[in-house]
Amino acid sequence: MKNENIIQYIYGIADNTLILGQRLSELCGHGPNLETDIALTNMALDLLGQTRSYYQYVAQLSGDEKTEDDIAFLRIERQYKNVLLVEQPNRHFGYVITRQFFYDVFHLLLLQELQDSTDETLAAIAKKGIKEVSYHQRFSSDWIKRLGDGTEESHKKAQEAVDDLWRFTDELFHMTEDDTIVMQNEIGVDTVTLKEKYYQRVREVLEEATLSVPETKWFQKGGKEGIHSEHMGYLLSDLQYMQRAYPNMKW
């Protein structure tokens, strides 16, 4: 196993938190009310904080001049290894919550395994993250129930979101070649083993929310291999604008 395998493995986790954090940041000042606005941006902050810890570690592992900022802002689309789920746009509040819920359930399961990694930095980042992501999961699960079991309109919108985003859930468990190598070295997590628990938890919450679980068996993937949806380019142009326009700018 080479450092490059671990770096690619970390991108597979950290790019998710970066891109989801970016999506949530877009809602700053645009939440449906003050409390949810603050909650979503607080979650964005947690995710971006975790991302920084991962990228700082990548910068250290790669041993060149690259900094966390170069990694976040100066890669091209194909080099981002986030799943398609997290890059999906903020269509409406129910959609934002559903996307968040689908990711939170996976995220918590992942970190609960990653905390036992033989790599002590990754284990430390995971342990720290678990505390934060537990809150995220509680928040998004509560809202799924409230929307699903709410008004006719909120139910309809939540169900539409569930039906639309369902096809992106299977990719969460996709193992790339790097993932497999890093897992075999007891640093990475075997995400395939999380699948059953994941769908069980998701089902429980959806059922409580009176939402039906989609029956579709067809799933979309690509993001983990760097092949993204049409939304990713727009997201990156927003994310990268300042560093591209004013190279090396700092706060």
Binding site: E35, T36, I38, A39, N42, M43, L45, D46, Y135, F139
Partner: peptide, 13 residues
């Protein structure tokens, strides 16, 4: 409780 997230990540409203 009004909101699980308050003015900062460490507080609830």
């Amino acid at each position: 409780m009004v909101s699980q997230f308050g003015s900062t990540a460490c507080k609830a409203l």
